[in-house]
Nucleic acid binder design. Sequence first.
DNA 1: CCAAAAGTGTTGAAGTTACACCCATGC
DNA 2: GCATGGGTGTAACTTCAACACTTTTGG
Lengths: 250, 250
Amino acid sequence: MVGNTRKKTDLNPNNSVDCVIFGFDFEQIKVLLIDRGQNLGNSKNLRALPGNLIYEEEDLDEAAYRVLEELTGIKDIYLEQVGAFGNPNRVNKESDREWLKSIRDEPNARVITAAYYSLVKIDDFVPRAHSFAKKAEWIPLSEIEELAFDHFEILQVAKEKLKQKIKIQPIGFNLLPEKFTLSQLHKLYECIFEKPLDKRNFRRKIQKLNILTNLKEKQRGVPHKPSQLYKFNEENYQLLTQNGYDNFGF
Amino acid sequence: MVGNTRKKTDLNPNNSVDCVIFGFDFEQIKVLLIDRGQNLGNSKNLRALPGNLIYEEEDLDEAAYRVLEELTGIKDIYLEQVGAFGNPNRVNKESDREWLKSIRDEPNARVITAAYYSLVKIDDFVPRAHSFAKKAEWIPLSEIEELAFDHFEILQVAKEKLKQKIKIQPIGFNLLPEKFTLSQLHKLYECIFEKPLDKRNFRRKIQKLNILTNLKEKQRGVPHKPSQLYKFNEENYQLLTQNGYDNFGF
DNA sequence: CCAAAAGTGTTGAAGTTACACCCATGC
DNA sequence: GCATGGGTGTAACTTCAACACTTTTGG
C-alpha cells in the first residue's frame, strides 16, 4: 500500500466508498459533510458524504480510510461497514450528474458504493477540505434534510446501525475525549437513542459494567460542582466480553 | 424488469451478489450451496454460495432475487443484506480462478460482492440446479468447513447478523412452515443461538409476546402426545412493533 | 405397558423503573 | 447568595433462571 503511486486510471469506475462520520460536541451528534462548492443556476448545492471511487487493487476498508483522509484529513479512526448501496437511480439529481462530469473520467458509469460509518473525537482534528471537497463541515444530524446522491438514505441506515451496535458494544467512547464525565457519556447516549434516559439509572448501569476507570481527577473551571473524570478501561472491557457478554442494554 | 432481454455483455464485470440461504429441517440449520461440478486434478471441488455478476442497470436487491432464482429455482423469500465484500484477494484459490475462466468473459476482473442472507421454508421447494450450478444442495451448517472464494467468511458474518437480527425481529418464522409447534420453534432458536434454552422459559417468553395464534389443531400420527399447532400472527406483530418494541430478547 | 415428546408452576435472585434532594463551584 | 449542573438511595415491580413431574399418543 504505502508508497504506491497510483494513477487516476487505476480507479475502479464502478465502485466507491462513502463515509458517515459521526461526531459529538457534548450537545448533539454531528455529521461531517463536504461541500462540493458548486455554483449552479437553478439546482441546489447539496452537501455530500465524503466518498470517492476505489482503486482497482484496493481493499474496501482500506479505501474507506484512504478516501476519508484524502477528503478531510482524518485518519486512524473507528470504522464500521453499513452495507452496499447500488440503486441504479442513485444519481438522479441534475446537480450530481453535473458534478460527476467535472471530476470523473467516466461520469456516467453505474457506481455501487460501500458505505461506512465512523465515530471520531470531534476535537482531535480540524477537518480540512482536500481534493474536490471545497469545504468539510460538521453539520448537526438533526438539521440534515437532503443530501447528494442517495446519501441521505445511507445516513439513515448508518444511524440505525449505530443505534443497534451501541447496544451490544460500547463504541460510544470513540466519540468522547480520552477523559470524560459521566454526564457527557449520559448525554451522548441520549443523543444516539434520541430519547431521555434517567440519570441515576444510567449511571448505575454503566458503572456496574466496570469498564470505566475513575481518574480521581476533576473538571476545572466550571461554574458548578466539578465532575469526576473517567476513562474507558479497555482491559476490563476485554475481560467482560471475552465470554460473549454483549448486553449493554438501554 | 420483466421481459428484458439481457445479454451477457450487459453484465457488470466488477459486481456480484452472493446469497447465504438458511433452511431448517427441525433438527439443524442448513445452508444451500451449489456444486460447480469441477473435475480437477489436484485442487478440491469446493462448494460455493449461489451468486453471480449483476447486470449494469440492476438494483442489488433485485439482482440477489434474480441470481437466486436462476441458480436454485427459489423465489419470493426473505432477504437481508449482509454487506459488501471486496478483499482483492477473494479469488486466490487455484480452483476458483480456473472456474472463473470457464464461465466469465473477464475472469480476471476484480469483483466486489454484495452478500445477502435469506431464510426459507425448506420444504417449500426442491432446490433445482440451473445454469452453472451443477447441483444445489442443503448442507448442514455445522459441517461446512471450507468454501470457494471468500464465501466461508461471508457465511460467518451472515450467521452473526442472523443471530443479532433475530433478537430484534422475529424472523425465525420464515424458516418454519405455516403451521408449527412450539417445540419446533424452540429447537430453531436453540440452533440459531447454538446453545440450549430452557423449555419452560422459552415457551412463556414467546407466548407473552402474543404474536402466535393457536390454531386449536393438533399434530397427527406422532408416537407421543401430539402438539398444538400455531401460526405467526402478523397483525399482532405489527401492533407490537409499531411503537418501536424490539426486545425479542434471548 | 412402554417410549417419546408435550405441557405446565413456583421460587429466589436480579434487574428495571420512577422519583427528589443536597453539594460544590464560579461569578 | 445564586445559578448551574454533579451526585446519590430506595421501594415497588418486572423479569429471569433454575428446576421435575404428569399427560397423551402410537406401537
